[in-house]
Amino acid sequence: MPVNKLKTLYFSVLLAFVSLLLPWSQVALLVRPDFMLLVLIFWLIRAPNLCNVGTAWMLGLLVDLTAGMVFGQYALAYTVTAFFAVTYQRRLVLFTGMQQLLYVFSLLLISQVMLLIIKTFAGAQFIGWLYFLPSLSGVLLWLLAMGLGLNTGGRGRAK
């Protein structure tokens, strides 16, 4: 079973990566959820033996590459997010669906805030509150996935 799961993990990461590479523009780019981070959080919650903080770092580096940014920015943001995800992973079993959504939302926000801090240090300007839209759309996507029957762990779901 683990081998099968590993394949699924690789496939989902590849899928998330290709969705990041789609030619998003204008409004779509503003709303686009961070697919890579969502997939990462899912696997950090569901299979902490397969991926950990190091995986997050590697994927962050990959996203850095595609975004054409300085190496290490997304990597750092993902690392910090993964740390929080892993720390509270075992408590997640007790979370209900709503609590889990809130938890995922805060994780997405953490990554965005980290990126904002790094970018501000590098001399960028804050681009307005719409910057946080991807977190919102990310949670909606998570909700959609739950609604479609994806087992995301948590009370009353994991069986």
């Binding site: 190091g54 290490g72 990597a75 750092l76 690392t79 910090v80 720390t87 790094i118 590098a122």
Partner: peptide, 21 residues
């Protein structure tokens, strides 16, 4: 521990950022 991993990879990211920019 996750904290050790966090520290290690954060330092690695910072080093990467510095060397890249």
């Amino acid at each position: 521990s996750p904290f050790a991993r966090l520290a290690f990879f954060s330092v690695l990211s910072l080093a990467l950022m510095a060397s890249d920019s």
